[in-house]
Amino acid sequence: MDEAILAFTGFLLVAVALGYILIAIPRSLAPREPSDAKARAYECGEVPVGEPWVRFHVGYYIFALAFVVFDVEAVLLFPWAVVLHKLGLVGLIQMGIFIAVLLLGLVYAWRKGVLEWS
């Protein structure tokens, strides 16, 4: 197997195991005295009114859509950045156009008022 994948797997195992062990230790050390009051959601010491799991107003969901676009773009830039010194001016212009189009999109969204938390 590829050593890189082995290393990754090793780290993943150790990471999860470490977290699990840390959580498991208090099971034998810590007291366990459950009560209704402890099991209730903490809302400043008062009895909560209503459900938290509702159709919650997420003020930024359009940002999230724009985020997907720009995140993909950012990832695209990395391979280009690695080889830019070989591509030279042509590569620069090509990517310049690509970024300009994206920026245009950003400006459009901005002017449309999408970049406001509603």
């Binding site: 909560p48 009114v49 159709r55 919650f56």
Partner: peptide, 17 residues
Amino acid sequence: EPGFETERIVVHMGPQH
């Protein structure tokens, strides 16, 4: 019973805050 509106929630802020 709201339609597709987002729902409002009522939150206690305090006394133990």
